[in-house]
Amino acid sequence: MAAENIDDVVDGLAGIVREAGRAGDRAGYFAALYRQVTVEVRTAIHRGLFDDGARMDRFDTHFGNRYFDAYDAWRRDRGGPRCWREAFGLLDDADTVIVQHLILGVNAHINLDLAVAAARTGPGEAIHALRRDFLLINDILARVVLAVQDSVGALSPFMSLLDRIGARTDERILDFSIRQSREEAWYNAVLLAGQDEEEREATLERLDIRTAVLARLAARPSGLVRPALQLIGATESDDVAAVITHLDSAMARPSARQGPG
């Protein structure tokens, strides 16, 4: 699928969520999170919160198409970027818990796709005009992550165990240091925006390898985190369709926590 605008991105994600729900496909977990972020970005565009709403529509469309391309490549022949193959390759693994599926999607989309989309939206020196709007999305992400965290907590009653063993708090696990990752993505976007085609290919190869390594660390953590995740997996909901529905309605719930922005 290929989106022409942000409305197409929302519709494409909604289609993946619906199909995943019918098929019991865990691809719907990240798609549900991503759909809600995109809806919030679209709302911010309509409210005039960005410096350049039309530019942000283009940016979000480039960003969404990176995900759709990876999703389609995986469905077609198990292809696509390494980091997305790591994420999609665990969709049939019942031992991978809900929050890990979310982290794997966030990892690939922010640590690889975000820089590419930003550089394509603002090539050359034009990238610098995108900075403020790029940062504003951090607040939108924070708000959605908090709401989705409530859903994950309801679906995974032992998520708090990760606090007690000294891992990141449950919110920070799902947060995945989003602000830091987006700051690195901005640096890479500026780099890509000023490179020629050969240089960009080399940079993308490096980013994909690094992001795939991060995916493997998230999928197979060491130390006490591993048995904690096993306990979480043994107690969280295994009804994939119900989990997708719950995650996809996180922002619609009256209890959804409101963050900055």
Rank of each mutant, 00 (worst) to 15 (best):
G124W: 06
G124C: 07
E125Y: 08
A126C: 03
H128R: 15
L130M: 14
L130G: 04
R131T: 01
R132F: 02
L136H: 07
L136K: 12
N138E: 15
I140T: 08
I140V: 13
L141R: 06
R143Y: 03
R143F: 01
L146R: 11
V148I: 15
V148L: 03
Q149N: 13
G153P: 01
G153F: 07
A154E: 14
S156E: 14
S156T: 12
L161N: 04
L162E: 05
R164G: 14
G166F: 08
A167V: 05
R168Q: 13
R168G: 11
T169G: 14
T169M: 03
R172D: 14
I173Q: 09
I173G: 00
L174Y: 14
S177V: 03
I178G: 02
R179S: 13
Q180D: 10
S181W: 01
S181V: 01
R182K: 12
R182F: 07
E184T: 09
W186L: 06
L191F: 06
E197Y: 00
E199W: 02
R200V: 07
E205I: 03
L207Q: 11
D208F: 04
L214Y: 13
A215M: 00
R216H: 11
A218W: 10
A219T: 05
R220P: 00
R226S: 13
P227G: 07
L229F: 15
L229A: 03
L229Q: 04
L229V: 00
Q230G: 07
Q230C: 00
L231Y: 01
I232Q: 06
A234Q: 02
T235C: 02
D238H: 15
V240N: 02
A241V: 03
I244G: 03
